[in-house]
Nucleic acid binder design. Structure first.
Lengths: 337, 337
DNA sequence: GTGAAAGCGCTAACAG
DNA sequence: CTGTTAGCGCTTTCAC
């Protein structure tokens, strides 16, 4: 690793100046003689000097690193956000560390500990639990730059970005009810996740508004993967009490449900109607196209960076809580019954 | 940031020992008195000592960080790999930095420079260019732990993992030809990407084998996103010379083509047959299901970690080049003509 | 068994 | 304008 060992000292020696001068020339601060600066630049170029951010960080306290802790990077919702974070961070010369919590509170703990030891500048997290974990609380107490997205644990006071999960879900289910549906199933992932909990609350609220009794046999839990959702859907349709409509709480589960229905030979929308939370790439491919509740995914990443950079810059402003509206996109997967 | 300032010195003071002893107790090496060790551990716990990997790294030369430079994390192919890398790295207490090159050589340069300054332990990259870039060559010269995946620039001698792009593409196109197709379109992304170049070579080879002349009006370039592929497909079908079959060189473009064909009202497989490179989540949803050439995506991440960890451990073994076979999964999107 | 001390590569206050 | 100097927090000989 020859080039790794090119240090500021080497450059300074080659340019015949002190390390301080070399540093000033390279980083462009303070007074440096034109000629000396030039010599330094040439020497640095020739030696292939790359600098060492670790040493810099040790002095300055932190690395140009932001951590992102999503539920699972495989979920298109999170990979879109990761992509946007990455893009935005380029402007700040910072890099993105990604460490999924796999919707597991234990793992989230580990992951956070790991990340904190790196002295990252800030953390953007989609917490696995809907309860305050000691870890997260500690971060807030310490005023660590932190932005929570997608879901906010009960009582956690920090900058956060969410969508209107409950009202959105309510609207979606209402829409099904207006089309005459009464036996509406919901396929959801772990209800310890705050966003899921809220979406389920919206589901129950819609039923309640219309005095439809809650039937727990129509509520099936899955993991947020296509294959788990396929299994969940098959389970749902293997029981006596079949639904006339399905509401899925995220796009991976919508895809799973769709795939399962196809295998089961259940026709959409004639035999079952469906609405999914979160739009997805192939929603307009099927015939009929799938009705969804879309969320403005592309707004989340850029806003998260804006918020965290403000905190990193030292903002003491009161906690910001941004909630985006969801939007029902009516396509053809819901039929009057 | 109170807790951030808990340093080894603080712990040592609280435990009434020297920093050296505290370090020994905490990291479990060298001789430490049982009782002293206990005092240190208690103090560390009480103060919430987290350690500082930056300082550690400065001494030891590197951070427990591996960088992944994919084409674009939005592509499911890469997000699957990212997910697997992350999972594997947990066993090594290392974190993953993700910085996409967006299939842009310039950007890749920047990104690599950025990452190298962090003294990461190793880099896993899907190079944007099919030519050796000076950056990458330099890394190899310096024996920097490096694993190239998905595509190998011409003449780059380093550990790499690919799939049999050319032969796979050839097989797919042969399959179309066997079904009587002669006007076979290909929708591909930037041919400067080595894997794309090889897939195109396979396409041309298949035509040549069967003495079908190459028709450049059937070759359309897109970017690897759904929306660009939609446009490309529409362009393709707006010209005189329409294809009877389409071969797409990655899954995002397959999805785009599918969506476009639906909009255009072109029926699969009766009006056009299609085969896509890389399997995808909704391939079995449509009727007919989509025939694809699948690659063993889930093998790539774990193997890449294995390879890079060997290099990090200092292996001087000769360069390894692993090529996985692709597999034609025949479903229903190709019809005899 | 434990402490003192040197130093990883860099920056920044201070003195010229 | 430039050099000297003192660390950032940690590990690791080397003495005791």
């Amino acid at each position: 690793m020859s080039s790794k060992s090119v240090t500021l000292k080497d450059v300074a020696a080659a340019a015949n100046v002190s390390r301080a001068t070399a540093a000033r020339a390279l980083n462009g601060y303070g007074y440096v003689g034109k000629e000396a600066a030039e010599r330094v630049r040439v020497a640095a170029g020739k030696l292939g000097y790359r600098g060492n951010r670790i040493a810099q960080a040790l002095r300055q306290g932190e690395l140009p690193l932001i951590a992102f802790v999503p539920g699972d990077i495989l979920n298109p919702f999170f990979s879109q956000i990761a992509h946007d974070l990455e893009t935005e961070l380029r402007a700040y010369q910072s890099n993105l560390i990604i460490a999924s919590n796999q919707e597991d509170v234990e793992l989230e703990q580990q992951v956070l500990t790991n990340i904190l030891a790196l002295n990252v500048k800030g953390i953007i997290v989609a917490p696995a639990s809907n309860e305050k974990t000691p870890q997260l609380s500690k971060l807030i107490e310490d005023k660590y730059p932190l932005v929570v997205i997608d879901r906010v644990p009960e009582g956690l006071l920090c900058d956060n970005i969410t969508v209107n999960n409950q009202q959105g879900a309510e609207e979606a289910v209402e829409f099904l009810i207006e089309h005459g549906h009464r036996r509406i199933a919901v396929i959801h992932d772990d209800s310890r996740i705050a966003s899921t909990r809220d979406r389920l609350a919206g589901y129950r609220l819609a039923l309640k508004n219309r005095s439809i009794s809650f039937d727990e046999t129509l509520v099936v839990e899955s993991k947020s993967t296509i294959s788990h959702a396929i299994d969940a859907t098959i389970r749902l349709f293997h029981q006596e009490n079949k639904p006339t409509a399905i509401f899925t709480t995220d796009s991976l589960m919508t895809k799973g449900a769709l795939l399962a229905l196809r295998t089961l030979g259940v026709k959409i929308p004639h035999e079952v109607s469906i609405i999914g939370f979160d739009d997805f790439d192939m929603a307009t491919f099927s015939d009929p196209q799938i009705t969804v509740l879309s969320q403005p995914v592309d707004k989340i990443g850029p806003l998260a960076i804006k918020m965290i950079m403000e905190r990193i810059a030292g903002s003491q402003a009161p906690v910001k809580s941004i909630q985006f509206p969801t939007q029902l996109i009516v396509r053809g997967s819901v039929l009057n019954i």
